[in-house]
Design a protein around this nucleic acid. Structure first.
Length: 416
DNA sequence: TCTGGGGTCCTAGGACCC
DNA sequence: TCTGGGGTCCTAGGACCC
């Protein structure tokens, strides 16, 4: 028997949640009713639009464009800074309601989840009716609207939730694909992005239907395995299960930042990298893993990207050791150009429950680990600046840089 | 268009080994 | 010494997602 899968997507999530929070805290204006947006941190030099209200759409405000660009289009645009702790709470509240109807829930991002309701239908009968029940409960109890896609796999459910917004339930069962999905522009298909659209266009492929009817051998030749993937998606073929728990294996941890001022000196760059390593190191220790690979990335003021990475044999979870490698990589990579953005990432994890102690540095390593632990605890109890390396004092650079602390749940990015 | 920050996976090319 | 080929690891960069 076919499965029945829902994809539930919060409409203008950040903006809706922000609006409700303000109404609950005594404001009378519902910012959903005026041109408004949740936008990047105003402290940074160039924030972007993360979510917009429906009245803001009239001004052609786009998600992802810079605040300056948006204000040019609509000078009266009301801007609210993001409030991530609120979004996590709002997201959790929604999932609590969904849990009453199904046990198989996969949180795909903060505002989206997949639900396998195959078994629930024995109790609730019609899938569209069940979707409407969930949608209405979220609306009346939590105050925001969702769009729900209904189908027999995750891909088609996800495509379905995009068909109608806000506050809607749409189906794309396999028999409805040719009518509901094939006429759409090919860029609407999951996994067909900015770089792929023109390549497909050059082959005369403009709609999802064109893609479905194209020759997979030719797609494979130009787009490699990605070509086969999207050809299968165009046919609605996708078989991954709704992963029940949120227990998934983290593959890498990274933080990066666009620096509030141009960085021209090695010394400043080193401080920013140390600040990123502090955050990456704390998150790594929090995850319970050790890393065997450290990488850094640089973006200069011409938006040119460069990266370096290094693999090593002795795993570590120490800020100091991560920083040593990151700094060395930076020094080898940097060409002296003005720096706009720096990133540090660790990956290639292994468990840290047994520690390989090398003969040479065993004792000092152990001491350093204990120091990291104490710092983590103090920072958990107070905040990042509770304990600060001397080199940061008066530098204008924060002692820790980057987001996503303890409360994060993983976003799956481009895999279903 | 003056373009954030968090991730994942894939590919090509070079190094190195047998 | 020069030659070929297969396998694996490492690295840089690019593509996609939210």
């Amino acid at each position: 028997m076919d499965k029945v899968i829902f994809h539930i997507d919060v409409n203008s999530a950040y903006l809706s949640w922000e609006a409700i929070y303000r109404l609950q805290h005594g404001e009378t204006l519902d910012i959903r009713t005026i041109p408004s947006a949740v936008g990047g941190d105003p402290k940074k030099r160039h924030g972007i639009i993360l979510a917009k209200s429906i009245p803001a759409k009239v001004f052609n405000i786009q998600t992802g464009e810079s605040l300056m660009e948006a204000l040019k289009k609509c000078p009266s645009l009301y801007l609210a800074p993001p409030r991530y702790e609120l979004y996590i709470k709002s997201s959790n509240a929604m999932v609590e309601i969904i849990k009453e109807y199904a046990s198989q829930i996969q949180r795909y991002s903060i505002d989206e989840c997949f639900v396998d309701v195959t078994d629930s239908l024995k109790l609730f009968g019609d899938p569209v009716e069940l979707a409407n029940i969930i949608k209405e409960r979220i609306k009346t109890e939590l105050g925001f609207t969702v769009s729900i896609g209904v189908s027999s796999n995750k891909l088609l459910a996800k495509m379905g939730s995009d068909l109608k917004k806000p506050d809607a339930v749409s189906t794309i069962f396999p028999l409805e694909m040719s009518e509901k999905m094939w006429p759409l522009p090919v860029g609407d298909l999951f996994m067909v992005g900015r770089a792929t659209i023109p390549k497909l266009g050059a082959m005369g492929i403009y709609t999802i239907g064109d893609l479905a009817n194209s020759d997979p051998e030719i797609l494979k030749f130009t787009l490699k395995s990605h070509g086969i993937l999207i050809w299968n998606y165009a046919h609605g073929r996708e078989y991954s299960p709704v992963k029940k728990s949120n227990h998934l294996i983290i593959k890498s941890i990274g933080n990066s930042t666009t620096i509030a001022f141009d960085v021209e000196t090695r010394r400043e760059a080193h401080l920013v990298i140390l600040s990123l390593c502090e955050m990456v190191g704390m998150r790594l220790r929090d995850s319970g893993y050790m890393t065997r690979l450290v990488g850094i990335s640089i973006k200069n003021n011409l938006f040119e990207h460069a990266s370096h990475q290094e693999k090593f044999n002795l795993p570590t979870d120490q800020t100091n050791e991560i920083y040593e490698v990151a700094r060395r990589l930076f020094d080898a990579l940097w060409d002296g150009s003005t720096i706009r953005h720096l990133g540090v990432r660790v990956s290639e994890f292994c468990e840290n429950d047994f520690t390989q102690i090398s003969f040479f540095d065993g004792i000092s390593r152990d001491k350093q680990r204990k120091l990291d632990q104490v710092v983590d605890i103090l920072r958990g109890r107070f905040d990042a600046s509770a304990i600060m390396r001397g080199s940061f004092v008066g530098s204008g650079i924060r002692p820790m840089t980057g987001g996503i602390g303890e409360d994060d749940f993983p976003m799956m990015g481009s895999i279903l």
